[in-house]
Design a protein around this nucleic acid. Structure first.
Lengths: 347, 347
DNA sequence: CAGTATTAATCAAACGTTTGCATTTCTTAA
DNA sequence: TTAAGAAATGCAAACGTTTGATTAATACTG
């Protein structure tokens, strides 16, 4: 009797009403008299009644739970996305449950099973690096559980996506480097089986070619995890090239930071000798000296958008929205790492 | 029939067995024949059966859900804690659902109601800055829902805690500053109604006094949110003091970064003119130049520990573990921001 | 062979809601 | 006065499991 939960039945007994009446009253169903409704509410408060959503979920055959799969929670980008998701979910009465795939396909698959078992109402996911084939997500189509991918998305599956235009963003960064006088621009690229990194490379190439600069494969350095260390390693290689680059576009901010520090250690000046640009606008990009020019990928916005899309699909289930793809606007943020003394495009 | 979930009943019908037999078989209950058990499993796989944990939770009157309340997900410290929680929870078969209090008491209260409604098995929480009184958590005592606080904890409530020894850590940092030659050490302190920040101030004081340095209240700068900007602001004030400090211990890394940048802008050298130390060991502390001496608060470890404690309590419910408090070891990480030319303690 | 264990499976209730379909009571119109 | 409609409430099944109590069938013991 101490912690014994108060249920709808208890209220019913106390008031000599049926449980259905209580249930309806608590939902302010108009078919229940105003008087009664008020009394039910007040008794509920008095007795400390709390609805049991597990029971409700079972009966209604749906939950208010949104499952989120991220590679890792402690990566800035993802924690910002999650924050955005939670923000919207909370406002709209949904709960958020989180899983880390650790970039492992096996774990991602296991997680999809858990989500199915838990009857989540919808899923937001960023694919694991290992994931090439998304068949483990296919089940959610037949279960009518809406699915929104963000950032690293799948094309072989009917599902909504929220992404940025990586090609365009990379193009703009590269063009910015060109416009500030760089003629020999290197690119530290991410794993090319992941489409976002492939697009960034493409955007880079396109800008180079558009401006009639030669495309030199030696200037493209393929990284795998885009860590600080990889950035440093690639940069050491680049500055030992016979013809040293005068600009480096890095596929993310971590590698850019690594690049900057290596360049400084080698007594080259940034941006005078080499300009550096990153991608993501992590907080650290304002701290590093010189401050890093980068692309703001608006992770928080991405999370909010994904959540909104998902919830709309959950609630309009019957309308059966065809999957939609939203492209989030990105911003080029110019800081000192590319801010050269005013030069004309041609020197 | 397309997305129709396969249930235990379907299996029962197909095999001419009762649902209870199926249920037991799926739990490998020894009272079911080996033969039967095998067949049930194989049919389950064949039909794509997935257990419905909502139903199971209702019947068992408990869920596998751990509720986590953090001030904000996108703060490095908390995202690392969450990552640790998820890591352990996943391994042990629990799910993690996350809520941000945004440091608002009102929201924190609302979240506790949601958690109760959702029948979470246990709760891990870091109190909102606004929270002075924890009565809204009291209900979980009577509901027998275990509760583990981390970092910002409550003392007026029977609950487990996982914390670091803020006093000790602050003491060690300060002593380190003294040992490397600082004689006039300032402290940029956090909100003093929050016990962790009060303890850091105390630790600072204790070290000062132990080494017979004068304690000068003018050298203590109380901040509220410990942001980069506050760090910068306080530092500007400090370096305009008639007697400028030769060391600053900041209550977190953000403020320390702000301090460093202000000091550099004012053409003072770090650590030669002023040593700077922070608290938390955020990734940025290795990036800033000079690299920041700080305390590693081992957030990830904290999350893992909190999760382990919580789950143990959930599972040993009957044993009724008295609340326990675990203090996580912290490490002083010495970097260039305090690494002076070798000097004796006395110059 | 009677009696007792042992094994394998079934029965039926329960968990706390929600909801379609009655039922009751009261108005209102004809 | 009666039929019909509206308003307020009740009945009972259902959601998909789990589990204590029970039964049926088989094997074992003395």
């Amino acid at each position: 009797m101490p912690g014994a939960r108060v249920t709808i039945k208890d209220l019913a007994k106390r008031m000599n009403l049926s449980v259905s009446t209580i249930s309806r009253a608590l939902h302010n169903n108009p078919s229940i008299g105003e008087e009664t409704t008020k009394e039910v509410w007040s008794l509920a408060k008095q007795l400390g009644y709390f609805p049991n959503s597990v029971a409700s979920n079972l009966r209604r055959r749906k939950t208010n739970m949104i499952g989120v799969i991220v590679p890792r929670i402690d990566i800035t980008f993802h924690s910002h996305v999650i924050s955005g998701v939670e923000e919207i979910a909370y406002k709209l009465g949904y709960n958020v449950t989180i899983y880390q795939s650790k970039d492992s396909l096996e774990r991602e698959i296991a997680i999809t099973s858990i989500l199915q078992t838990n009857m989540v109402a919808g899923i937001i996911a960023c694919l694991a690096l290992e994931t090439q084939n998304c068949s483990h997500f296919a089940r959610f189509n037949s279960l009518k559980v809406p699915l929104v991918f963000y950032d690293r998305v799948s094309n072989d599956l009917e599902a909504s996506k929220v992404i940025i235009d990586d090609f365009d963003a990379a193009f703009r960064v590269t063009e910015h480097l060109i416009n500030t006088g760089c003629k020999r621009i290197a690119h530290i690229a991410g794993c090319q089986t992941t489409s976002i990194f492939a697009s960034r490379l493409e955007g880079y190439k396109a800008a180079i070619l558009k401006h009639n600069l030669p495309f030199d494969p030696n200037l493209v350095c393929c990284a795998t995890d885009l860590s600080y260390e990889e950035g440093a390693r690639c940069t050491r290689k680049l500055i030992r090239l016979p013809e040293i680059p005068d600009g480096i576009f890095c596929a993310n901010d971590y590698t850019a930071i690594g690049a900057i520090q290596v360049i400084k250690k080698n007594n080259l000046r940034i941006p005078d000798d080499i300009s550096v640009a990153g991608f993501s606008n992590y907080p650290v990009s304002t701290i590093i000296e010189p401050a890093l020019t980068t692309i703001d990928d608006r992770a928080f916005e991405m999370g909010k958008t994904a959540a909104r899309m998902l919830i709309r699909q959950i609630e309009d289930r019957d309308v059966n929205i065809a999957s939609e793809t939203v492209v989030i606007r990105t911003d080029l943020i110019v800081r000192d790492s590319t801010r050269r003394q005013p030069v004309k495009a041609e020197n």
